[in-house]
Amino acid sequence: MNKVEVRNLTKSFGDLLVLDDVSFDVKDGEFLAIVGPTGCGKTTFLNSLTQIYDIDSGSILLNGEPVNLKKHSLAYIMQEYSTMSWLNVRQNVQFGLEIKGFSRKEVREKAERALELVGLTQFRDYYPNQLSASMLQRVAIARAFAVQPDLLLMDEPYGQLDLELRFKLEDELLNLWRKLGTTVIFITHNIEEAVYLSERILVLSNKPTAIKETIENRLPYPRSVTSEAFVELRNRVTALIKWW
């Protein structure tokens, strides 16, 4: 079954054609990575899926129907900082849980779990203007993970983080994905990250953007970045994007 169906998606900003007749599916429970040159429209795609942007033509279906943000359980970790400056860290993480109407106790517990996950437990009473860029991103990650969405959209979420934390959160993401059966669409610049995480990689072309290539990644989890098969696949993807 398909979780997401993108059909003939076209989106332009004025004269600038960004997404040109793009079609692809994401299977239920699949981990999909999307890589592509800067400015090719990766963020535009996620913003179209989540109805932040209106699309020109084509359709995006979620569970076979048009996206309904109130009904469908999805979370979107944006490229920009999206923490609410008037809420402290804990309140930010609880935000989605409260909107979704969990009981007070559940809200507390789930938020605490998510804070622990991203290592912000001690900072739960801080306000965003007291935090560093990477901490802000972790707040957004915790907020998304806390609601245990069945579609998780991530737009270059780990770019700002130091390596150690990135590795930890990559593994955490894999755990979450496997435990909950969440469908994940993960946008990244980092080929190694894409190969490490995903079951399939979409390689996008320059504007006007189309899908240049789809690469299946059947390496068994947990993956080792130094294994021969891993390195080979990484090189294959890297070769594809040489022209960037």
Binding site: N47, T50, Q51, I52, L69, K70, S73, L74, A75, Y76, M78, E80, Y81, S82, M84, W86, F95, G96, I99, K100, A140, R143, V147
Partner: peptide, 28 residues
């Protein structure tokens, strides 16, 4: 901030919740 409005909508916030939780605090 439209990013925050987007983030709140994504988490399921309706019009009224957007107003109370995002627009009003932004205006304070």
């Amino acid at each position: 901030d439209p990013v925050l409005i987007g983030a709140a909508r994504m988490l399921g916030a309706g019009k009224f919740q957007l107003f109370v939780h995002i627009i009003l605090p932004s205006a304070i």
